Computed example of a mutant assay.
Amino acid sequence: MYALIALGYTMVYGIVRLINFAHGDVFMVGAFLAFYAVEKFHLPLPAVFAIAAGGAAFLAVVIERVAYRPLRHAPKIAALITAIGVSLFLEYFTALHQVFGPNYYAFPRPFQVVSLEIGGITVTNIQGVILVVALASLGALQYVVYRTKVGRGMRAVSHDAVTAGLMGVNVNGVISFTFGLGAALAGVGGVLYGIAYPQINTFMGVMPGLKAFTAAVLGGIGSIPGAFLGALIMGQSETMTTAYLSSTYRDGIAFVLLIAVLLWKPTGILGKARTEKV
């Protein structure tokens, strides 16, 4: 689940050099859309994934068009402050009773939980679904980026937006598509989160969003495989910390890892240093 959120961070940063701190709240909106799709309309799981991904993508495209595009050529600090403002707006606006409400909601699981013990390790079908969906999403993303025309445009804009525009690439369209694609993955992650931890609220995206950002930096922000690798390391570190030390340190280990990586290899495990041309 960290990987699905981290991929959105790393793609957006790779294209426009922006840390979209509202991304965790888009993840939250995806979870709520899935909740209503299951609770109110009793839709099958594929339709739930489609609604969550589509709704999150639409929200991200609107955010990019309204909040980020007018500041594209402004100082980076302005875009960063705007991203934090959009995040706070989404959290408190959706907490209104007229929207989602401030309460916790029990997320209805669309299937029964089945456990299987292998060599003393308990594995559930929920964990299997999360792994399969995450790997399938990563494979689909790799295909889009490296085997499609829009993916070629994404790589061109990431390398040099001005030159890409001169060569006929619709830069604004590519950036909007990148925001939407990353948000769709976050929406899928929101569904998986609701199934795995069946309780959601409007502030649920804060900590997963921060940890996914840390995972993206750990793996090398701007690198798609790096985001996935960083998320796996993050998840394993949290699990091992809980098992062998204490759950009290579970959240702290993420930021200890972030500090260590920034001191040891600021570009991340798979990241590459960019040469700034004058």
Rank of each mutant, 00 (worst) to 15 (best):
M1N: 13
L4C: 05
A6G: 08
A6M: 04
Y9M: 05
T10A: 04
M11I: 03
V12T: 03
Y13A: 02
I15L: 14
F21E: 00
A22V: 02
V26R: 08
F27V: 08
V29H: 04
A31P: 02
E39V: 04
E39M: 13
K40P: 00
P44R: 01
F49E: 11
F49D: 11
A50C: 04
A52E: 07
A53W: 10
G54Q: 07
G55H: 11
A57G: 08
F58K: 02
F58E: 03
A60L: 04
V66P: 05
A67W: 06
A67S: 12
Y68I: 08
R69S: 14
L71T: 09
A74C: 03
K76C: 00
K76Y: 09
L80N: 03
A83V: 01
V86N: 02
S87F: 03
L88A: 09
L88Q: 06
L90Q: 08
E91T: 06
Y92Q: 14
A95M: 01
H97S: 14
Q98K: 10
F100W: 12
G101I: 07
N103Q: 10
Y104I: 09
Y105F: 15
P108F: 10
S115M: 11
E117R: 15
I118A: 11
I118P: 04
G119A: 00
I121T: 12
T124L: 04
N125I: 07
N125C: 07
Q127A: 13
G128K: 01
V129Y: 15
A136L: 15
L138V: 11
L138A: 09
L138G: 05
Y143L: 15
V145W: 12
V145T: 06
R147T: 11
T148K: 05
R152T: 14
G153Q: 00
S158I: 05
H159Y: 05
V162P: 04
V162K: 15
T163F: 09
A164L: 05
L166Y: 13
V171D: 14
V171T: 15
N172R: 11
G173T: 01
L181T: 00
L181V: 03
G182M: 04
A183W: 00
A184D: 01
V188C: 06
G190S: 15
L192Q: 03
P198C: 10
I200M: 08
N201C: 08
V206S: 02
P208A: 14
P208W: 12
P208M: 10
L210C: 06
L210A: 15
L210V: 08
F213H: 10
T214E: 14
L218F: 15
I224A: 00
A227G: 01
G230K: 13
L232V: 14
I233Q: 09
I233D: 02
I233M: 07
S237F: 00
T239E: 14
T242W: 00
T242Q: 09
A243Q: 05
Y244N: 02
L245G: 07
R250M: 07
L257D: 09
W264Q: 02
T267C: 05
G268A: 10
G268K: 09
K272V: 07
